[in-house]
Design a protein around this nucleic acid. Structure first.
Length: 874
RNA sequence: GCAGGGGUAGCCAAGUGGUCAACGGCGCAGGGUUUAGGACCCUGUCUCACAGGAGUUCGCCGGUUCGAAUCCGGUCCCCUGCACCA
């Protein structure tokens, strides 16, 4: 055990004993809800990928806590799921036992990282006290029509022995085990996510999420606006509805195509001779299979149905084809084909010798015959009374024209399908339903909840284990009291995770899943952290739940996660770190070698948190050195007097770290802290206030070292519960009597300086030479130019040492509201200098003399020596 | 195809109009210290120059600007997600 490891254990124990991070709901405090996606307790130890994730979340929580926010930072377990059940089958251990063992292990690992969770709010979804409320919510959603039972063609995973939601099928394969999905027709439970399709798309505008995730959700929901056109079928009373986004091309529609499972195929078979009907049926069946089992038809094929439709715009009779690439699951399962203006239709028309009629032209006149399709917009040609119109506007005018004849209407289509939540497995929340021979499907009354998972089941690997439990299945109908059977399907575990963030706010409530007022106080989550793999699963379902619960009156907000962050993955040897790939660096290894703080620092500092990183054994040694310096600050001689340079370094570090934290640039924040530590480490004697500031600045990233240093410097624990160090104006004691305050920090903090000048007029403020031009720039930009500039210009040194650009000044003058972007250049050509000199003089009415710095002092030397005060304001 | 994100020195990686020859880390080189090995500390690390300094760089080509890694247009390449979506 390394020394560091010993120190770390000590502080972890002290935090726990003191319940340092327990938080109370306090509606008068400013809240911050910081949340990491709760993990599935797998039973494996943590590796660097996990630790990076937690280190990032903890850094944010600690930072906000130090800033005085009332921080809710809970942790719990997404404890239901297949692996536990598979372990039961394989190793003859009950899923509950397996899961609770894994939770104990994971929790202890987390504690050894020093994460500042409020463990009093811990939850596990496999706890009946939790899943009772899954069932309760199920009932509420059911009552309000948001859960229903339906027969549908669904995705079946033969390896997991269960159905899956669309979101859990990736390229035709199971998201967990990569088995090929089979299609089956079954009666199942669905959640009506489509009821909120519009809002789920629109509200993406209002949340601070990575563009990538938003794009994925938009794409998944797949909203598409267009027109449904009605094609009457020739010689029958039937009609064919077709959805299109390009109604402007309707005059060029020379055939229509329907999906292989379209109901019109039956009509077609009735209308024709036996042989043809047989052929059509065969074609449709083959095509349908192809659609279900293959990703994409390689070969676009079709067959004439014998039916004709009347193009409502041209009144022509056009053939109806059945085609293998038309999907029954989207739109109305039929397309209007415009070969001249759609690539696929063009190829199809060419292959089947169908007419190609140009109706849009870029030149404004017809160019037939076309060599290829043109899919853009342009001017309509050969389009009756609409010829000459721009196709973009024709989308509306043609829709209106057809709508007047009841042949079209505006329509919105979605790719999103309702969420199938039935699972034919044991280790999940039992769906609270009962099948009664007399009453049909009856839901379990609220007062009988929870429906608990039984123990008397056998895990054979065949079928749903719940079906083996006599005690579970046999029940009585709540309606008629006759014997009845329980539903043996359980809920998709994503149901559990769709509202867990609400439970944390009020985790021990036995009367309801959560208290409305308390949830409204804490939510939405201010910072949510997790992997991008949940983009269209958990993140979509949780948004749906929030909106649904809002409309049921339980919540008064619409989005659960205001800000979302996706951390990058940790790679080793080019692939992501994972147990199954055998390339993990374990938590234990890092703890023993360097202490966990080193690991945390390294993982947070090595790159921007959203980027993937490549683990490098030798990289971490650099971080280890830095951490040692931090620890060793406690052993250096200290002084109570802070010197000007250190003070200025300190303020700059505080300002920078704060800014970086706000921008979620944790890597830069860490690097700033470490270089400040490095600076202090190189001093003979360390000013106490500076060392204390360093201890606090390091707290979010290396909390153990922070506490240790803080205590050794003579303070009372805990550093973790102190006030974040403030910079400049707040920091300075109004009675501060030092002669000069040396300010380097003004670069980023000129606003602070102005405040300071106003507040403490007795303090002389000195600006370092290197920063003067930046100061000048910022002064101009905040509109305090008049007095400050005058003072600056009055100062001999200021005038002498700098060359000015004047564009900025001029722009500022032309447009006083604008922020000038410009100022000084050191290597200016002489004539430019002269021009600028004149401008400056003009603009500010000051005399400017420009000198090149001919003196021999090298740049290096200048940097090595403490900077000389250059300007005195007041 | 649609959508999102990238291309910076040997490697990783900061850097969104002037404090940029470009933070930091790794690697490499020299020195110190210690040493069984290692670990640690300092210095250097685009090119030329003893140095002051000079030259040439941020995928490629153009443009805007007094000034571009940074802004604009074009182009090449890479990654990620969705993909028969009418």
């Amino acid at each position: 055990m390394s020394d560091f490891q010993e120190i770390e254990r000590k502080w972890q124990q002290r935090w726990e004993d003191a319940e340092a991070f327990t938080v109370e709901t306090d509606t008068s405090a400013t809240k911050f809800y910081n949340l990491e996606m709760f993990p599935y307790p797998s039973g494996y130890g943590l590796h660097m990928g996990h630790i990076r994730n937690y280190a990032i979340g903890d850094a944010i929580a600690r930072y906000k806590r130090l800033q005085g926010y009332n921080v809710l930072y809970p942790m719990g377990w997404d404890a239901f799921g297949l692996p536990a059940e598979n372990a039961a089958i394989k190793h003859d251990i009950y899923p509950a036992e397996h899961t609770y063992n894994a939770i104990a292990q994971l929790k202890s690992s987390m504690e050894r990282i020093g994460l500042s969770y409020d463990w009093s709010r811990e939850i596990a979804t496999c706890d009946p006290a939790y899943y009772k409320w899954n069932q309760w919510l199920f009932l509420q959603l059911y009552k309000n029509g948001l859960i229903y039972r339906d027969t549908a063609t669904i995705n079946w995973c033969p390896s997991c022995h269960t159905v899956l939601a669309n979101e859990q099928v990736e390229q035709g394969q199971c998201w967990r085990c990569d088995s090929e999905i089979e299609m089956q027709k079954l009666e199942q439970w669905f959640v009506k996510t489509t009821a909120y399709a519009d809002e789920l798309v629109d509200d993406l505008e209002h949340i601070d999420w990575p563009e990538r995730i938003k794009a994925m959700q938009r794409n998944w929901i797949g909203r598409s606006e267009g027109t449904v056109v009605i094609f009457p079928i020739v010689d029958t009373a039937a009609q064919l509805d077709v959805f299109t986004t390009r109604i402007d091309t309707i005059f060029g529609c020379t055939y229509v195509a329907i999906a292989p499972d379209h109901p019109l195929i039956e009509t077609a078979q009735e209308q024709t001779d036996k042989q043809t009907a047989q052929k059509i049926r065969q074609f449709a069946e083959t095509a349908l299979k192809e659609q279900r089992f293959e990703k994409e038809t390689t070969d676009k094929q079709g067959m004439f149905t014998g039916l004709y439709a009347r193009n409502p715009a041209t009144q022509e009779a056009i053939p109806i084809y059945v085609a293998n690439f038309v999907l029954g699951t989207y739109g109305s399962g039929a397309i209007m084909a415009v070969p001249a203006h759609d690539e696929r239709d063009f190829a199809f028309a060419t292959a089947y010798d169908l007419p190609i009629r140009q109706v849009i032209s870029q030149e404004g006149e017809s160019q037939e015959p076309l060599q290829e399709s043109y899919t853009g917009y342009g001017t309509l040609v050969q389009s009756g009374q609409f010829s000459g119109q721009e196709s973009v506007t024709a989308i509306d005018t043609i829709t209106d024209w057809l709508a007047e004849q009841n042949l079209a209407y505006h329509s919105v289509q979605y790719k999103l399908k309702d969420w199938l939540i039935s699972r034919q497995r044991y280790w999940g929340t039992p769906i609270p339903a009962i099948y009664c021979d007399r009453c049909g499907i009856v839901l379990v009354p609220e007062e009988q909840l929870p429906v608990e998972l039984p123990d008397d089941v056998s895990f054979t690997g065949e079928g749903n284990p719940l079906e083996t439990s006599e005690t579970f299945i046999k029940t009585t109908c709540p309606h008629c009291g006759q014997s009845a059977q329980r539903e043996t399907d359980t809920m998709d575990t994503f149901f559990d995770s769709s509202w867990y963030f609400l439970r944390y706010c009020d985790p021990h409530n036995t009367q309801q899943p959560f208290d409305t007022d308390i949830s409204n106080h804490w939510l939405p989550v201010d910072q949510y952290i997790g992997g991008a793999e949940h983009a269209v699963m958990h993140l979509l379902y949780a948004r749906f739940f929030t909106k649904a619960l809002r409309d049921l009156g339980y919540l008064s907000f619409s989005e659960p996660f205001q800000r979302l962050f996706n951390q990058g993955v940790v790679h080793k040897d080019g692939v992501s770190m994972s147990k199954s790939k055998g390339n993990v660096i374990s938590q234990e290894h890092i703890e023993e070698q360097f202490g966990i703080d080193t690991g945390r620092l390294y993982l947070v500092s090595v790159a921007s948190p959203e980027k993937d990183i490549e683990w490098d054994d030798s990289d971490i040694k650099g971080t280890y050195r830095s951490l040692k310096k931090l620890y060793s600050l406690a052993d250096k001689p200290t002084t109570h007097q802070n010197d000007d340079k250190t003070l200025s370094k300190q303020h700059k570090a505080i300002a920078d770290v704060t800014e970086y934290m706000e921008q979620f640039q944790l890597n830069k924040a860490v690097n700033t802290v470490l270089s400040f530590v490095d600076y202090l480490y190189n001093l003979e004697t360390v000013p106490l206030p500076a060392a204390e500031a360093a201890a606090l600045l390091a707290n979010p990233f290396a909390p153990h070292a922070s506490e240790e240093l803080w205590e050794k410097l003579g303070n009372t624990p805990f550093a973790s519960l102190q006030q974040w160090p403030s910079c400049l104006s707040e920091y300075i004691d109004p009675t501060y009597e030092a002669e000069d305050l040396f300010i380097e920090t003004v670069y980023r903090d000129i606003r602070e300086v102005s405040k300071l000048v106003q507040k403490y007029s007795h303090i002389k403020i000195i600006v370092a030479a290197e920063w003067r031009h930046a100061l000048y720039r910022q002064i101009v930009s905040i509109g305090r130019q008049d007095d400050l500039i005058q003072q600056l210009m009055a100062h001999e040194q200021f005038r002498q040492h700098h060359d000015f650009t004047v564009k900025a000044a001029q722009r500022y003058q032309d447009n006083p509201g604008a922020i000038p972007t410009t100022l000084i250049g050191q290597k200016r050509e002489q004539q430019v200098l002269e021009r600028e000199k004149a401008r400056i003089a003009d603009t500010f009415g000051a005399t400017v003399s420009l000198c090149k710095e001919e003196d021999a002092e090298s740049k290096k030397k200048e940097r090595a020596e403490p900077m000389k005060p250059a300007i005195v304001l007041r």
